[in-house]
Design a protein around this nucleic acid. Structure first.
Lengths: 216, 216
DNA sequence: CCACCTTTTGACCACCTGGTCAAAAGGTGG
DNA sequence: CCACCTTTTGACCAGGTGGTCAAAAGGTGG
């Protein structure tokens, strides 16, 4: 407890103060937006959660929308990253399992990011339409091709690559987006690591066995 | 074009007027809430969409929240209905396939209902917590038992019934909730019937083959 | 046709929201 | 220590929101 992390007394250089405040605000904003959505979140609530007065938040981010866009940008990078690493040379046995593990871990570690993204799509993607049509589409097409290649090599059954991806996304992201429902139905206060592991196991089984990928 | 559907001139009995207006309002509200969420939807917008002045909407539903609750109630009934009809005597081969078909059809036919429900869960289920913990939990437990019975009879592999249901829900509902994303990635203006059919086919395959349910 | 109930509607309001501003406080570099 | 820049903050505001109200219009039953 050498020093308070809050802004009380602590002679800090401006650059550090700035970075620190921006981080605090982004963090608080991400949680608030995830909890109550964009229109349901008030700048005052974000400011409170970040421990700053409201005008201070508007000082760093010129508008609520600007702040939301900044949050979204962060999230999208994270999101795109997880789709990487499906290469046609890899065998689907490992590639798909790893992909499922990665995506479910993401749901466990960044549930707010997933929720904000889900709400965004749900409500017509008013702020991420471009990214959907641009970078994400490219990633998607590439990944579809990888799966096609696997099928061509006889490594898996000829299933629709597009819908396989949709199902993978839906199933893995639901561990974040519908985590509340799962908690209620499983009678848990919080999802546990073995809940996520069970999800991984089931989904891996469905996909590998269901697509006729040889396990050994 | 015998008569305008709007309220212009048409000597209609009060009871009919009442039912008609309530229906219009609920319909308009469902669409608006699905599009922009509860906080993002304005009573004025609902009134406009229903072709009525704002105070008229508040005349039938005492508050925005009351209207939202009414919309939710409708949706929940629809939602619970689809979980029915999994009986332990039925063979999972038909039962699961039918279930998938039913749920994806629901996503196709009532996307707004699915979206509202999804947003509700996403944001902490402030208005449906009770239903989750009550009726839905009961349904869930029953369904889990049915799947357990199938496993006990050796009709399918011993997989986690809970997570199987989570995956089924996620995958089927995503055809409504993430329909926009699918449309963008598939380069469609609207999802077509064969898109839904492909989803049904893939998911059925994953589940039946993946869970070791004998196809014949 | 008339007293009575339901529905419609324009005007209105208290409140909250995002955003502004200017002055004060704090940090910086010479 | 001082001129200068960045950050903080209380006071403030215009616009939009959910909701009210009272009066008018429309339907109903005898």
């Amino acid at each position: 407890m050498a020093e308070k992390k809050s802004s009380k007394r602590a002679r800090r250089p401006l650059t550090e103060i700035r970075q620190d405040n921006i981080d605090q605000i982004l963090k608080a904003a991400e949680r608030q937006f995830a909890e109550t959505g964009f229109p349901g979140t008030t700048v005052a609530a974000i400011a409170d959660a970040a421990g700053l007065p409201k005008p201070n938040v508007l000082y760093y981010f010129k508008s609520k929308e600007g702040l939301y866009r900044a949050v979204l940008k962060r999230i999208l990078e994270l999101w795109m990253e997880a789709m990487h690493d499906l290469s046609p040379d890899q065998h689907p046995r490992e590639a798909l399992r790893d992909y499922i593990v990665r995506k479910i871990r993401q749901s466990r570690d960044y549930p707010d990011a997933s929720k904000i993204f889900a709400a965004e799509i749900l409500h017509g993607a008013p702020y991420v339409r471009e990214e959907l049509e641009g970078p994400l589409k490219v990633q998607f097409d590439d990944t579809v091709e990888v799966i096609r290649a696997w099928i061509a090599k006889g490594w898996m059954d000829p299933v629709s690559p597009e819908h396989l991806l949709f199902t993978l996304w839906a199933a893995t992201q639901s561990y974040a987006d519908f985590g509340l429902q799962m908690r209620v139905l499983l009678e848990r206060d919080e999802l546990r690591d073995d809940d996520f592991d069970n999800g991984i196991e089931l989904l891996t089984r469905l996909v590998l066995k269901g697509c006729g990928v040889k396990i050994v």
